[in-house]
Design a protein around this nucleic acid. Structure first.
Lengths: 349, 349
DNA sequence: CGTTGGCACTCGGTAGAATTGACTGCTAAC
DNA sequence: GTTAGCAGTCAATTCTACCGAGTGCCAACG
């Protein structure tokens, strides 16, 4: 970090205390009112002890350095993405309101059920807390091993392969055979599949029988259909809560359309969240994530871990003009609770 | 195709040929332009052979009888819900464009995979074809019987109950035991569960062992957690495609918000579709379905059957000002293809 | 020197008046 | 019964004037 030697020029990454205070005031005010904010309303802020005139001259500096922008000549200032970035980076981590804290505790004290259900509920919790659209991503089971495989006869030529993974995931695949399969064959195939696959991961290569009898064919079909799973999607699950909030939080119908269009593409949402996490960020503002249609959005993410391994993430999506402090606190607290929840489940049990 | 037995309005439910032609012209024009349509543009329609003045006098009659409405005194006419209803009831079933027909054929020639995946893809197909939001509902497995139950050890105190139903559905439930369970116990419980549950439906009462040993407890827990499934949701699956179309097709942001809010509540969507089907309708216009927030929408539904049993439905949701002919044709064709697809799967296999 | 009050200026937003034009309903003639 | 013509209505548009929020600049002040 460069020191604050010159107060002019060169966008050093640090602002002197007064500029920082003013920037913060502008952000807070603008988030509240959605309006450009002028020098006098900044000066009336309790933390700012100088006159509007001084504020004005500081503001031209902030604008020159790219932290603020002016919609038009005789309007107040609006924070730029860079301005928000500074604000967020220098935010002392907020604390949740006690009511919200209670809401979260209450929620995690009572959730039950399958992982998927918990994640979905969590997503709803997050939107209810923040009024922003939330995204919860559950990690795929690419690294987990097969616990059990079972072949079930739907009818003579139609079987269902049910695979259980060590992370509790269950996937099914239907298999159509070109010949009638007897229950005995199915049972035998099931037995062989178990012997073959238990303990392996999906990308492990296994030795399939090369014979041409019914059972061997079934086994081969089952293995291939199961391994075909891999490339499609890595099995990540995405739960999006409160898409309708998008329409409440953005004003332009076209923005709403663009954002919803993105949210519909779940794979894209996964990579968005993944990208942000990979960049080590907890917030991506405006164009930082590189998804153009979301350039008027900010995305907050917080990782969820199981046994210190990344196991997903929770996220919030709002306008760049969003209540970062509250939203970040919510995301963080919920992600921690979620992490603890899954750890707790392991431990109990 | 026309149904609607109730005819007890002050005016007869049938219009003379000229009024019908004029109404149709108004609907077509309004659907195209989204603007109130005036007498002269109606008169210039090829099917209308009278002068604007005559059209005007017919229009006052149509307005008196509730088929048209005037936004304000010096504006053209707009169809009312009743007007759309008449239009739809007297629509000769449209034919799909050849390009679209090809698209559908192509699609159903190549879809593969699990029922859920097919339904989801179908939903995307429908939105792509029509540019409206689509809803595909897959029937729940409340009537199907248990084909197989399996208990899998996640760890000593943590089991997973995997149940396969005759319709190919697979559901899982985790079970936490208050004691360590040996693999032998799990296998035995699994065996007992199979004996107990195979062939039953979810609402059947079964005789559970009353002993207090580990295996019996496991069995009891498993049965109760499985039967607890029932009340929550009947297992219907809903696939909604193109929610973002909502933002394209409606103009008011508040309408968008309301409609999205409804779409988020999947249970509500299921009952909406169910209600409309129960009323025997294929289209619900405006307030006909009784869901107030959707009063500016029209919903088109077409049933999907398996073995002549209702097995779900496909639907399209758009503004009352929607292209009924095309949309209805699309819904119908797709539902038929879907019905045939599932029938075909049974047959092959 | 930095800070401040004062002042002229800019420009978006709004309110009202005038205008337009797309309709209508009515009526009298065909 | 149909039509042409005409007067009337009213939303939408345009224009104008004006207001006021907010700026940049500057001179004065500690």
């Amino acid at each position: 970090m460069a020191r604050r030697a010159t107060k002019e020029h060169s966008s050093t990454d640090d602002l002197d205390a007064r500029k920082a205070t003013i920037l913060e005031a502008v952000v807070n005010e603008h988030v509240d009112t959605a309006q450009p904010v002028g020098s006098s309303s900044v000066a009336s802020n309790a933390d700012v002890v100088v006159s509007p005139a001084t504020v004005r001259s500081e503001m031209v500096a902030l604008e020159r350095d790219g932290y603020l922008a002016q919609p038009h000549t005789s309007a107040g200032r609006v924070p730029t993405d860079k301005g928000y970035r500074y604000f967020v980076d220098h935010l002392k981590s907020g604390v949740l309101g006690s009511a919200q804290q209670r809401q979260v505790n209450e929620f995690f004290a009572h959730v039950r059920g399958e992982v998927e259900d918990v994640l979905e509920q969590t997503s709803l919790l997050l939107t209810k807390m923040t009024s922003y659209t939330s995204v919860v991503v559950g990690a795929g089971h690419s690294t987990s091993t097969v616990l059990s495989v079972q072949l079930v006869n739907l009818d003579a030529r139609h079987q269902l392969l049910v695979t259980v993974f060590s992370d509790g995931a269950v996937v099914k695949h239907s298999i159509m055979s070109g010949f009638d399969v007897s229950p005995v064959d199915v049972a035998e195939a099931s037995r062989q599949l178990n012997a073959l696959l238990i303990g392996t991961t999906l990308d492990a290569r296994v030795q399939v029988p090369s014979r041409t009898d019914h059972v061997a064919t079934l086994v081969r079909d089952a293995v291939s259909v199961l391994h075909a799973e891999q490339p499609t999607a890595e099995g990540e699950q995405v739960f999006i809560g409160g898409s309708s909030k998008v329409a409440e939080v953005f004003d332009g119908v076209d923005t709403v359309r663009k954002v919803l269009g993105i949210l519909e593409q779940e794979l894209l949402v996964v990579s968005l969240v993944q990208d942000i996490l990979n960049q080590g960020l907890s917030v991506a503002i405006g164009a930082e994530h590189g998804y153009e249609p979301l350039s008027s959005c900010a995305v907050i993410v917080a990782p969820v871990t199981i046994d210190n391994m990344p196991a997903g993430a929770v996220g919030l999506l709002g306008p760049t003009r969003m209540k970062y402090r509250e939203a970040m606190a919510a995301a963080q607290v919920v992600s921690q609770h979620l992490t603890r929840h899954f750890a707790g489940e392991e431990e109990r049990g």
